[in-house]
């Protein structure tokens, strides 16, 4: 069942009410047209059934914040800040760029960014039991990528960058104490937090990343077959207890 919602001049509260109603009525394929910066789209949504949602326009801050639903949200454009904030379940495919603090404290679901990502992306990303925050950025990400990361998997591919644009900013993985980051460049170790260490990918890592890249390539209609293992580095925490020796008991 195809449902179309026109978001033109619609306050986010009413847009979400319409979306909740449509999902409750069993809609599985929803298109929202005319999105112009409405915040909190799908925030806190839960849903029994999987459904796909296509957003035409620019969603505002906190798209899918606290979301816990088997929804696949495709954004045909850029997003603002805080996409997938504390998201537990769901999949967000952004065809353009994502703003700052995207994927903050995400515990499950996937965040695929077809362009570049802003600052502080994936801070405190987590994993728990069968859930793991999964973030892939096709282009570059700015400072504090994966700061305080506690679990999950994140990758930056460095594609389509402007000349001189670094693949990732400074303070990457500072305070990291869980999870894995893959970066498709042998970056200067000085931009990585001292709580994390850089290493080569194992065959197992490459297989795991490969599965993720295949899904990313399909969702964003990109050919990633030219990427190879030796281009990537892996960042993992040195210890699950980075601050264990900080205190005098």
């Amino acid at each position: 069942m195809k449902t179309i919602i026109d978001a033109t001049s619609l306050h986010y509260r009413h847009l979400n009410e319409n979306l909740r109603k449509a999902l409750a009525a069993g809609a599985t394929d929803i298109t929202v047209k005319g999105v112009r910066g409405q915040r909190y789209i799908c925030a806190g949504f839960t849903a029994e059934r999987p459904a796909s949602l296509t957003i035409e326009g620019i969603p505002g801050n906190d798209l899918a914040a606290f979301m816990n639903a088997p929804l696949t949200i495709r954004v045909k454009g850029n997003t603002q800040d805080g996409v997938a904030n504390t998201m537990n379940e769901g999949k967000i495919v952004i065809e353009g760029d994502a703003g700052d603090v995207s994927g903050y404290s995400m515990r499950g679901g996937k965040l695929f960014i077809g362009g570049n990502a802003g600052y502080r992306v994936g801070i405190h990303a987590k994993a728990y039991r069968d859930r793991a925050a999964t973030v892939v950025v096709a282009g570059s990400a700015q400072d504090f990528f994966g700061e305080y990361m506690a679990g999950g998997i994140m990758a930056i591919l460095g594609l389509d960058r402007l000349a001189g644009q670094p693949i990732v900013g400074s303070f990457c993985a500072t305070g990291m104490h869980g999870g894995t980051i893959f970066i498709r460049e042998h970056i200067d170790p000085r931009i990585v937090g001292k709580e994390a260490a850089i290493s080569e990918l194992s065959e197992g890592d490459w297989r795991e990343l490969g599965v993720l890249l295949d899904e990313f390539a399909t969702d964003l209609a990109r050919d990633l077959s030219h990427l190879n293992k030796s281009e990537f580095i892996k960042i993992e925490p040195v210890s699950g207890r980075p601050y264990g020796r900080l205190y005098a008991y």
């Binding site: 915040r39 909190y40 805080g82 700061e147 869980g178």
Partner: peptide, 28 residues
Amino acid sequence: TDALSPAPHHDIYSIEDLRQLVFALKES
């Protein structure tokens, strides 16, 4: 594993950001 709570919420650097989280929760 250690449960580390960062000093600030890294999505709140201002009153406007706090308002955003307040309303993200209200909306949720």
